[in-house]
Amino acid sequence: MLAVQTKGLTKKYKDLTAVDSLDLEVEQGELFSLLGVNGAGKTTTIRMLCCLAKATSGEAWVMGKNCDSDKTAVKSMIGISPQDTAVAERLTVRENLLFMCRVYGFDKQKSRDRTAELIDTFGMQKVADSRAKTLSGGWKRKLSIAMALIGEPQVLFLDEPTLGLDVLARRELWREIQSLKGKLTIILTTHYMEEAQQLSDRIGIMIEGRLAALGTLSELEKQTGTTGLENAFVAIAEGGAQ
């Protein structure tokens, strides 16, 4: 069974086509990056896969469940870390995690255990009792991802996870994301070439709502006759523009 599958997935906002006939297949356990400039349709794609936006046409499935007709099942299998950190600012790190545990219906003991486990996994012990609003950008992102992992999702969506972070915080978050590889399917959106190159098993390049290219880094280099993701991206983007 595929982790994510879309067929002709399209989203239109009045005259604007944000996502145009997207056909995509992501295997279980894969770390798949959607790469594109701002407005390429990456976030809209994620929103449709997370049941946060209704497709204008086409269909999407997450772990075999339809994102339109079986939303409850899809929501129980996914976790999302949105572009903004989306944490409760006046709650502590621990309280944010406990809150999400209760949202997923865990009992007290399981909530405590899962919270402790995630605090440990992300090395958040020293900030566990600090309020979210006092955290740095890097810690907030870690908390956001930890909150997305609370429900033990099979598919994790990370929307621009390192946006606005400094280079050190970004590298640290990459290590955290890499440590999750293989344990679950990760769909990541980014416009940082290096990030997609470092983390991904496969990369999908979106240009103006369309999936312009798809493959591993070496496959993309081969397709474009270039070296490095940035050159491949530019070649594809310019080709797409022409």
Partner: peptide, 13 residues
Amino acid sequence: SGTFLMRLYATPM
């Protein structure tokens, strides 16, 4: 105004 509600929309809430 933030995306906190959006996160909750993606849960069984």
